[in-house]
Design a protein around this nucleic acid. Sequence first.
DNA 1: AAATTAACGTACTGGTTCGTACATTCAATT
DNA 2: AATTGAATGTACGAACCAGTACGTTAATTT
Lengths: 216, 216
Amino acid sequence: MTAGAARAHDAGRTRSDILAVATRVFARQGFNGARVDEIAARTRTTKRMIYYYFGDKRGLYVAVLEQAYTELRTAQRGVDVAHLPPVEAVRALAERTFDHDDTHRDLIRLVVGENVHDAAHIRGSDALARLGDPALHVISRILADGRASGDFATEADAVDVHMLIGAFCFFRIANQHSFAALFGRDMTAPDHRARLRRMAGDMVVAYLRGGGAAAR
Amino acid sequence: MTAGAARAHDAGRTRSDILAVATRVFARQGFNGARVDEIAARTRTTKRMIYYYFGDKRGLYVAVLEQAYTELRTAQRGVDVAHLPPVEAVRALAERTFDHDDTHRDLIRLVVGENVHDAAHIRGSDALARLGDPALHVISRILADGRASGDFATEADAVDVHMLIGAFCFFRIANQHSFAALFGRDMTAPDHRARLRRMAGDMVVAYLRGGGAAAR
DNA sequence: AAATTAACGTACTGGTTCGTACATTCAATT
DNA sequence: AATTGAATGTACGAACCAGTACGTTAATTT
Protein backbone atom coordinates (compact mmCIF):
# COMPACT_ATOMS: atom_id res chain seq x y z
CA MET A 1 0.00 0.00 0.00
CA THR A 2 1.20 3.49 -0.83
CA ALA A 3 2.16 5.69 2.08
CA GLY A 4 0.07 8.70 1.12
CA ALA A 5 -2.98 6.77 0.00
CA ALA A 6 -6.29 7.63 1.60
CA ARG A 7 -7.62 4.62 3.42
CA ALA A 8 -10.83 4.16 5.33
CA HIS A 9 -9.16 2.59 8.34
CA ASP A 10 -6.00 4.50 9.16
CA ALA A 11 -5.19 4.49 12.84
CA GLY A 12 -2.31 6.96 12.72
CA ARG A 13 -4.16 9.50 10.69
CA THR A 14 -7.36 9.33 12.74
CA ARG A 15 -5.41 9.71 15.95
CA SER A 16 -3.43 12.72 14.84
CA ASP A 17 -6.52 14.27 13.33
CA ILE A 18 -8.27 14.06 16.68
CA LEU A 19 -5.23 15.44 18.48
CA ALA A 20 -4.95 18.44 16.19
CA VAL A 21 -8.61 19.34 16.56
CA ALA A 22 -8.59 18.75 20.31
CA THR A 23 -5.57 21.03 20.70
CA ARG A 24 -7.46 23.89 19.15
CA VAL A 25 -10.65 23.31 21.10
CA PHE A 26 -8.97 22.80 24.49
CA ALA A 27 -6.84 25.87 23.87
CA ARG A 28 -9.85 28.05 23.07
CA GLN A 29 -12.34 26.74 25.59
CA GLY A 30 -10.24 25.29 28.37
CA PHE A 31 -10.69 21.77 29.70
CA ASN A 32 -14.08 22.34 31.29
CA GLY A 33 -15.41 24.50 28.49
CA ALA A 34 -14.39 22.07 25.77
CA ARG A 35 -17.10 19.70 24.53
CA VAL A 36 -16.18 16.21 23.43
CA ASP A 37 -19.02 16.30 20.95
CA GLU A 38 -17.68 19.51 19.45
CA ILE A 39 -14.20 18.06 19.09
CA ALA A 40 -15.68 14.97 17.45
CA ALA A 41 -17.78 17.02 15.06
CA ARG A 42 -14.71 18.88 13.82
CA THR A 43 -12.76 15.74 13.10
CA ARG A 44 -13.03 13.50 10.08
CA THR A 45 -14.24 10.76 12.40
CA THR A 46 -16.65 10.31 15.31
CA LYS A 47 -16.74 10.60 19.08
CA ARG A 48 -16.42 6.87 19.41
CA MET A 49 -12.84 7.10 18.14
CA ILE A 50 -11.85 9.62 20.80
CA TYR A 51 -12.75 7.10 23.47
CA TYR A 52 -11.22 4.30 21.48
CA TYR A 53 -7.81 5.98 21.32
CA PHE A 54 -7.70 8.18 24.42
CA GLY A 55 -9.96 6.50 26.95
CA ASP A 56 -11.77 9.58 28.19
CA LYS A 57 -11.80 13.36 27.95
CA ARG A 58 -8.97 13.71 30.44
CA GLY A 59 -6.83 11.22 28.55
CA LEU A 60 -7.29 13.23 25.39
CA TYR A 61 -6.38 16.41 27.25
CA VAL A 62 -3.17 14.91 28.63
CA ALA A 63 -2.23 13.65 25.16
CA VAL A 64 -2.75 17.17 23.80
CA LEU A 65 -0.52 18.65 26.51
CA GLU A 66 2.22 16.09 25.97
CA GLN A 67 2.26 16.68 22.24
CA ALA A 68 2.28 20.46 22.61
CA TYR A 69 5.10 20.49 25.16
CA THR A 70 7.12 17.99 23.18
CA GLU A 71 6.88 20.20 20.11
CA LEU A 72 8.12 23.06 22.25
CA ARG A 73 11.16 21.08 23.27
CA THR A 74 11.87 20.16 19.66
CA ALA A 75 11.64 23.79 18.62
CA GLN A 76 14.09 24.76 21.36
CA ARG A 77 16.57 22.16 20.19
CA GLY A 78 16.97 24.08 16.96
CA VAL A 79 18.06 27.20 18.84
CA ASP A 80 21.73 28.03 18.47
CA VAL A 81 22.98 31.22 20.02
CA ALA A 82 26.14 29.82 21.59
CA HIS A 83 28.37 31.20 18.88
CA LEU A 84 27.26 34.79 19.57
CA PRO A 85 28.94 37.10 22.09
CA PRO A 86 27.02 37.10 25.39
CA VAL A 87 25.11 40.35 24.99
CA GLU A 88 23.99 39.48 21.50
CA ALA A 89 23.19 35.95 22.60
CA VAL A 90 20.70 36.98 25.31
CA ARG A 91 19.14 39.50 22.99
CA ALA A 92 18.72 36.84 20.33
CA LEU A 93 17.30 34.49 22.93
CA ALA A 94 14.78 37.09 24.09
CA GLU A 95 13.68 37.86 20.55
CA ARG A 96 13.40 34.20 19.71
CA THR A 97 11.21 33.61 22.77
CA PHE A 98 9.17 36.65 21.82
CA ASP A 99 8.59 35.32 18.31
CA HIS A 100 7.81 31.84 19.55
CA ASP A 101 5.14 33.03 21.95
CA ASP A 102 3.77 35.28 19.23
CA THR A 103 3.27 32.38 16.86
CA HIS A 104 2.26 29.60 19.26
CA ARG A 105 -0.77 31.04 20.97
CA ASP A 106 -2.53 27.73 21.38
CA LEU A 107 0.36 26.49 23.49
CA ILE A 108 0.16 29.61 25.64
CA ARG A 109 -3.52 29.06 26.22
CA LEU A 110 -2.90 25.45 27.17
CA VAL A 111 -0.26 26.49 29.69
CA VAL A 112 -2.61 29.07 31.14
CA GLY A 113 -5.39 26.53 31.46
CA GLU A 114 -3.02 24.09 33.05
CA ASN A 115 -2.16 26.54 35.80
CA VAL A 116 -5.80 27.07 36.62
CA HIS A 117 -5.80 23.49 37.82
CA ASP A 118 -2.45 23.81 39.57
CA ALA A 119 -0.68 21.98 36.73
CA ALA A 120 -2.13 18.72 37.96
CA HIS A 121 -1.79 17.03 34.57
CA ILE A 122 1.79 18.07 33.93
CA ARG A 123 2.80 16.83 37.35
CA GLY A 124 1.30 13.46 36.61
CA SER A 125 3.22 13.05 33.37
CA ASP A 126 6.78 11.74 33.46
CA ALA A 127 7.21 12.82 29.85
CA LEU A 128 6.84 16.45 30.86
CA ALA A 129 8.83 16.64 34.09
CA ARG A 130 11.92 18.82 33.80
CA LEU A 131 11.21 19.51 30.18
CA GLY A 132 12.81 22.91 30.57
CA ASP A 133 16.30 21.70 31.44
CA PRO A 134 17.79 21.98 27.94
CA ALA A 135 16.74 25.61 27.71
CA LEU A 136 18.36 26.32 31.06
CA HIS A 137 21.60 24.80 29.88
CA VAL A 138 21.83 27.25 27.00
CA ILE A 139 21.24 30.20 29.31
CA SER A 140 23.81 28.96 31.82
CA ARG A 141 26.48 28.97 29.13
CA ILE A 142 25.64 32.49 28.04
CA LEU A 143 25.66 33.75 31.61
CA ALA A 144 29.03 32.15 32.32
CA ASP A 145 30.50 33.68 29.17
CA GLY A 146 29.03 37.07 29.99
CA ARG A 147 30.44 37.11 33.48
CA ALA A 148 33.82 35.96 32.22
CA SER A 149 33.93 38.77 29.67
CA GLY A 150 32.78 41.32 32.19
CA ASP A 151 29.60 42.15 30.30
CA PHE A 152 27.25 40.83 32.99
CA ALA A 153 27.32 41.98 36.58
CA THR A 154 24.23 40.37 38.16
CA GLU A 155 24.22 37.24 40.21
CA ALA A 156 20.97 35.99 38.64
CA ASP A 157 21.01 32.33 37.61
CA ALA A 158 19.68 30.65 34.49
CA VAL A 159 16.19 30.01 35.89
CA ASP A 160 15.84 33.67 36.85
CA VAL A 161 16.81 34.84 33.38
CA HIS A 162 14.50 32.37 31.74
CA MET A 163 11.68 33.59 33.94
CA LEU A 164 12.51 37.23 33.20
CA ILE A 165 12.31 36.71 29.46
CA GLY A 166 9.40 34.30 29.60
CA ALA A 167 7.25 36.51 31.82
CA PHE A 168 7.48 39.44 29.44
CA CYS A 169 6.78 37.48 26.26
CA PHE A 170 4.13 35.26 27.81
CA PHE A 171 2.22 38.07 29.47
CA ARG A 172 1.88 40.05 26.26
CA ILE A 173 -0.04 37.20 24.65
CA ALA A 174 -1.78 35.64 27.63
CA ASN A 175 -3.23 38.88 28.99
CA GLN A 176 -3.73 40.78 25.78
CA HIS A 177 -7.50 41.01 26.11
CA SER A 178 -7.86 42.22 29.68
CA PHE A 179 -4.90 44.53 29.09
CA ALA A 180 -6.59 46.03 26.06
CA ALA A 181 -9.83 46.48 27.98
CA LEU A 182 -8.21 48.11 31.00
CA PHE A 183 -5.51 50.20 29.32
CA GLY A 184 -6.77 50.68 25.80
CA ARG A 185 -3.76 49.20 24.08
CA ASP A 186 -3.56 46.18 21.80
CA MET A 187 -0.13 44.74 22.56
CA THR A 188 -0.37 42.47 19.55
CA ALA A 189 -0.85 45.25 16.99
CA PRO A 190 2.11 45.38 14.54
CA ASP A 191 3.69 48.61 15.78
CA HIS A 192 3.43 47.72 19.45
CA ARG A 193 4.60 44.24 18.66
CA ALA A 194 7.78 45.53 17.06
CA ARG A 195 8.53 47.96 19.87
CA LEU A 196 7.85 45.40 22.60
CA ARG A 197 10.13 42.95 20.82
CA ARG A 198 12.96 45.46 21.08
CA MET A 199 11.99 46.13 24.69
CA ALA A 200 12.33 42.46 25.56
CA GLY A 201 15.95 42.42 24.44
CA ASP A 202 16.76 45.83 25.94
CA MET A 203 15.27 44.82 29.24
CA VAL A 204 17.25 41.61 29.71
CA VAL A 205 20.49 43.14 28.55
CA ALA A 206 20.04 46.14 30.81
CA TYR A 207 19.26 43.93 33.77
CA LEU A 208 22.18 41.60 33.24
CA ARG A 209 24.59 44.51 32.91
CA GLY A 210 23.54 45.49 36.39
CA GLY A 211 22.21 48.99 35.81
CA GLY A 212 19.47 48.50 38.34
CA ALA A 213 21.30 46.95 41.25
CA ALA A 214 24.18 49.43 41.02
CA ALA A 215 21.90 52.25 42.09
CA ARG A 216 20.88 50.71 45.35
CA MET B 1 -32.76 47.72 64.91
CA THR B 2 -29.11 47.36 65.79
CA ALA B 3 -26.62 47.47 62.95
CA GLY B 4 -24.60 44.41 63.91
CA ALA B 5 -27.54 42.27 64.94
CA ALA B 6 -27.98 38.92 63.25
CA ARG B 7 -31.25 38.86 61.41
CA ALA B 8 -32.86 36.11 59.44
CA HIS B 9 -33.69 38.33 56.49
CA ASP B 10 -30.68 40.50 55.73
CA ALA B 11 -30.33 41.35 52.08
CA GLY B 12 -26.95 43.06 52.29
CA ARG B 13 -25.34 40.30 54.27
CA THR B 14 -26.71 37.48 52.15
CA ARG B 15 -25.59 39.21 48.98
CA SER B 16 -22.05 39.84 50.14
CA ASP B 17 -21.83 36.34 51.58
CA ILE B 18 -22.66 34.90 48.16
CA LEU B 19 -20.19 37.23 46.45
CA ALA B 20 -17.34 36.27 48.76
CA VAL B 21 -17.92 32.56 48.28
CA ALA B 22 -18.41 32.92 44.53
CA THR B 23 -15.14 34.84 44.23
CA ARG B 24 -13.25 31.95 45.74
CA VAL B 25 -14.98 29.28 43.68
CA PHE B 26 -14.77 31.12 40.36
CA ALA B 27 -11.11 31.89 41.04
CA ARG B 28 -10.29 28.24 41.75
CA GLN B 29 -12.45 26.53 39.17
CA GLY B 30 -12.94 29.11 36.44
CA PHE B 31 -16.34 30.07 35.10
CA ASN B 32 -17.09 26.76 33.40
CA GLY B 33 -15.64 24.63 36.16
CA ALA B 34 -17.54 26.43 38.92
CA ARG B 35 -20.80 24.82 40.06
CA VAL B 36 -23.67 26.99 41.20
CA ASP B 37 -24.71 24.24 43.59
CA GLU B 38 -21.25 24.21 45.12
CA ILE B 39 -21.25 27.96 45.59
CA ALA B 40 -24.68 27.75 47.17
CA ALA B 41 -23.64 24.96 49.49
CA ARG B 42 -20.75 27.03 50.83
CA THR B 43 -22.93 30.02 51.61
CA ARG B 44 -25.13 30.55 54.60
CA THR B 45 -28.11 30.54 52.22
CA THR B 46 -29.40 28.57 49.25
CA LYS B 47 -29.13 28.47 45.49
CA ARG B 48 -32.44 30.22 45.15
CA MET B 49 -30.86 33.39 46.55
CA ILE B 50 -28.12 33.41 43.95
CA TYR B 51 -30.74 33.65 41.23
CA TYR B 52 -32.75 36.08 43.30
CA TYR B 53 -29.87 38.55 43.58
CA PHE B 54 -27.77 37.91 40.48
CA GLY B 55 -30.16 36.56 37.86
CA ASP B 56 -28.00 33.75 36.57
CA LYS B 57 -24.54 32.24 36.80
CA ARG B 58 -23.10 34.80 34.41
CA GLY B 59 -24.60 37.67 36.36
CA LEU B 60 -22.93 36.37 39.50
CA TYR B 61 -19.63 36.05 37.68
CA VAL B 62 -19.76 39.61 36.37
CA ALA B 63 -20.61 40.87 39.87
CA VAL B 64 -17.57 39.00 41.21
CA LEU B 65 -15.33 40.55 38.57
CA GLU B 66 -16.63 44.04 39.17
CA GLN B 67 -16.11 43.78 42.90
CA ALA B 68 -12.61 42.35 42.53
CA TYR B 69 -11.46 44.99 40.05
CA THR B 70 -13.02 47.77 42.05
CA GLU B 71 -11.09 46.66 45.11
CA LEU B 72 -7.96 46.73 43.00
CA ARG B 73 -8.62 50.32 42.03
CA THR B 74 -9.22 51.28 45.63
CA ALA B 75 -5.95 49.68 46.66
CA GLN B 76 -4.12 51.60 43.96
CA ARG B 77 -5.60 54.87 45.18
CA GLY B 78 -3.66 54.48 48.40
CA VAL B 79 -0.36 54.34 46.54
CA ASP B 80 1.78 57.39 46.92
CA VAL B 81 5.23 57.37 45.41
CA ALA B 82 5.13 60.84 43.87
CA HIS B 83 7.24 62.33 46.63
CA LEU B 84 10.15 59.96 45.94
CA PRO B 85 12.96 60.67 43.47
CA PRO B 86 12.26 58.92 40.14
CA VAL B 87 14.54 55.91 40.53
CA GLU B 88 13.27 55.16 44.00
CA ALA B 89 9.71 55.79 42.86
CA VAL B 90 9.74 53.12 40.13
CA ARG B 91 11.44 50.69 42.45
CA ALA B 92 8.78 51.30 45.08
CA LEU B 93 6.10 50.90 42.44
CA ALA B 94 7.56 47.60 41.28
CA GLU B 95 7.81 46.25 44.81
CA ARG B 96 4.31 47.38 45.61
CA THR B 97 2.97 45.60 42.52
CA PHE B 98 4.99 42.55 43.46
CA ASP B 99 3.50 42.51 46.95
CA HIS B 100 -0.02 43.12 45.70
CA ASP B 101 0.11 40.21 43.26
CA ASP B 102 1.63 38.07 45.98
CA THR B 103 -1.27 38.68 48.32
CA HIS B 104 -4.21 38.84 45.88
CA ARG B 105 -4.01 35.50 44.14
CA ASP B 106 -7.75 35.13 43.67
CA LEU B 107 -7.76 38.31 41.62
CA ILE B 108 -4.92 36.96 39.48
CA ARG B 109 -6.84 33.78 38.84
CA LEU B 110 -9.91 35.76 37.87
CA VAL B 111 -7.90 37.82 35.40
CA VAL B 112 -6.41 34.66 33.93
CA GLY B 113 -9.82 33.09 33.56
CA GLU B 114 -11.15 36.25 32.00
CA ASN B 115 -8.51 36.13 29.26
CA VAL B 116 -9.46 32.57 28.37
CA HIS B 117 -12.73 34.00 27.16
CA ASP B 118 -11.09 36.99 25.48
CA ALA B 119 -12.13 39.28 28.33
CA ALA B 120 -15.70 39.24 27.08
CA HIS B 121 -17.17 40.15 30.47
CA ILE B 122 -14.83 43.04 31.16
CA ARG B 123 -15.56 44.50 27.77
CA GLY B 124 -19.27 44.37 28.47
CA SER B 125 -18.95 46.22 31.75
CA ASP B 126 -18.79 50.01 31.74
CA ALA B 127 -17.67 49.94 35.34
CA LEU B 128 -14.46 48.19 34.32
CA ALA B 129 -13.50 49.97 31.11
CA ARG B 130 -10.33 52.04 31.45
CA LEU B 131 -9.97 51.06 35.06
CA GLY B 132 -6.21 51.24 34.68
CA ASP B 133 -6.01 54.93 33.87
CA PRO B 134 -5.21 56.17 37.39
CA ALA B 135 -2.24 53.80 37.60
CA LEU B 136 -0.94 55.07 34.28
CA HIS B 137 -1.12 58.63 35.49
CA VAL B 138 1.19 57.89 38.39
CA ILE B 139 3.72 56.25 36.09
CA SER B 140 3.59 59.11 33.61
CA ARG B 141 4.58 61.55 36.32
CA ILE B 142 7.49 59.43 37.44
CA LEU B 143 8.72 59.01 33.87
CA ALA B 144 8.54 62.73 33.20
CA ASP B 145 10.48 63.46 36.38
CA GLY B 146 13.07 60.83 35.57
CA ARG B 147 13.66 62.14 32.10
CA ALA B 148 13.90 65.70 33.37
CA SER B 149 16.49 64.70 35.96
CA GLY B 150 18.46 62.68 33.42
CA ASP B 151 17.98 59.41 35.30
CA PHE B 152 15.90 57.78 32.57
CA ALA B 153 17.02 57.42 28.99
CA THR B 154 14.37 55.22 27.36
CA GLU B 155 11.50 56.42 25.26
CA ALA B 156 9.08 53.89 26.79
CA ASP B 157 5.70 55.29 27.80
CA ALA B 158 3.60 54.68 30.90
CA VAL B 159 1.71 51.72 29.44
CA ASP B 160 4.96 50.01 28.50
CA VAL B 161 6.38 50.42 31.99
CA HIS B 162 3.18 49.22 33.59
CA MET B 163 3.28 46.17 31.37
CA LEU B 164 6.96 45.55 32.13
CA ILE B 165 6.34 45.52 35.87
CA GLY B 166 3.01 43.74 35.67
CA ALA B 167 4.27 40.95 33.44
CA PHE B 168 7.03 40.02 35.86
CA CYS B 169 4.90 40.08 39.00
CA PHE B 170 1.86 38.50 37.41
CA PHE B 171 3.75 35.68 35.75
CA ARG B 172 5.42 34.59 38.96
CA ILE B 173 2.04 33.88 40.54
CA ALA B 174 -0.04 32.89 37.52
CA ASN B 175 2.42 30.34 36.17
CA GLN B 176 3.94 29.12 39.39
CA HIS B 177 2.72 25.56 39.00
CA SER B 178 3.76 24.79 35.45
CA PHE B 179 7.02 26.63 36.09
CA ALA B 180 7.71 24.47 39.12
CA ALA B 181 6.92 21.32 37.15
CA LEU B 182 9.09 22.23 34.17
CA PHE B 183 12.03 23.92 35.91
CA GLY B 184 11.96 22.53 39.40
CA ARG B 185 11.71 25.88 41.15
CA ASP B 186 8.96 27.18 43.41
CA MET B 187 8.94 30.91 42.68
CA THR B 188 6.72 31.51 45.68
CA ALA B 189 9.08 30.00 48.24
CA PRO B 190 10.30 32.65 50.73
CA ASP B 191 13.91 32.88 49.54
CA HIS B 192 13.03 33.02 45.86
CA ARG B 193 10.25 35.44 46.63
CA ALA B 194 12.64 37.87 48.29
CA ARG B 195 15.19 37.66 45.49
CA LEU B 196 12.60 38.03 42.74
CA ARG B 197 11.19 41.06 44.53
CA ARG B 198 14.58 42.72 44.31
CA MET B 199 14.88 41.59 40.71
CA ALA B 200 11.62 43.30 39.83
CA GLY B 201 12.96 46.65 40.98
CA ASP B 202 16.44 46.12 39.52
CA MET B 203 14.97 45.16 36.17
CA VAL B 204 12.76 48.23 35.72
CA VAL B 205 15.40 50.62 36.94
CA ALA B 206 18.04 49.08 34.69
CA TYR B 207 15.73 49.21 31.72
CA LEU B 208 14.67 52.81 32.26
CA ARG B 209 18.29 53.92 32.63
CA GLY B 210 18.82 52.60 29.14
CA GLY B 211 21.58 50.06 29.70
CA GLY B 212 20.10 47.72 27.15
CA ALA B 213 19.38 50.02 24.26
CA ALA B 214 22.77 51.71 24.49
CA ALA B 215 24.47 48.54 23.35
CA ARG B 216 22.64 48.24 20.09
C1' DA C 1 -52.66 44.33 64.34
C1' DA C 2 -53.58 43.68 59.62
C1' DA C 3 -51.78 44.03 55.17
C1' DT C 4 -48.16 44.15 52.07
C1' DT C 5 -43.77 43.38 50.32
C1' DA C 6 -39.12 41.71 50.62
C1' DA C 7 -36.32 37.76 51.64
C1' DC C 8 -35.90 33.04 51.73
C1' DG C 9 -36.26 27.48 51.28
C1' DT C 10 -37.59 22.98 48.98
C1' DA C 11 -38.24 20.18 45.43
C1' DC C 12 -38.19 19.60 40.87
C1' DT C 13 -37.42 19.87 35.51
C1' DG C 14 -35.42 20.10 31.12
C1' DG C 15 -31.54 20.20 28.57
C1' DT C 16 -26.81 19.13 28.16
C1' DT C 17 -22.86 16.14 27.94
C1' DC C 18 -19.74 12.41 29.06
C1' DG C 19 -19.42 7.88 28.14
C1' DT C 20 -20.90 3.12 26.18
C1' DA C 21 -23.46 -1.06 24.09
C1' DC C 22 -23.89 -2.93 19.92
C1' DA C 23 -23.43 -3.40 15.09
C1' DT C 24 -20.38 -2.95 11.08
C1' DT C 25 -16.48 -2.41 7.81
C1' DC C 26 -11.88 -2.86 6.51
C1' DA C 27 -7.27 -5.06 6.31
C1' DA C 28 -3.99 -8.38 7.40
C1' DT C 29 -3.06 -13.34 7.95
C1' DT C 30 -3.40 -18.29 6.84
C1' DA D 1 -11.26 -17.36 0.14
C1' DA D 2 -11.94 -17.73 4.86
C1' DT D 3 -10.77 -15.98 9.28
C1' DT D 4 -9.56 -12.92 12.74
C1' DG D 5 -8.82 -8.71 14.94
C1' DA D 6 -8.36 -3.86 14.55
C1' DA D 7 -10.82 0.28 13.34
C1' DT D 8 -15.09 2.67 12.81
C1' DG D 9 -20.18 4.33 13.03
C1' DT D 10 -24.91 4.70 15.35
C1' DA D 11 -27.87 5.16 18.81
C1' DC D 12 -28.64 5.49 23.39
C1' DG D 13 -28.22 5.83 28.63
C1' DA D 14 -27.25 8.02 32.94
C1' DA D 15 -25.50 11.60 35.48
C1' DC D 16 -24.96 16.20 36.04
C1' DC D 17 -26.31 20.89 36.43
C1' DA D 18 -28.35 25.52 35.39
C1' DG D 19 -32.45 27.41 36.24
C1' DT D 20 -37.58 27.55 38.13
C1' DA D 21 -42.42 26.73 40.21
C1' DC D 22 -44.32 27.03 44.30
C1' DG D 23 -44.75 27.76 49.02
C1' DT D 24 -43.07 30.03 53.51
C1' DT D 25 -41.17 33.31 56.85
C1' DA D 26 -39.65 37.74 58.31
C1' DA D 27 -39.79 42.75 58.12
C1' DT D 28 -42.12 47.02 56.90
C1' DT D 29 -46.05 49.90 56.28
C1' DT D 30 -50.67 51.58 57.38
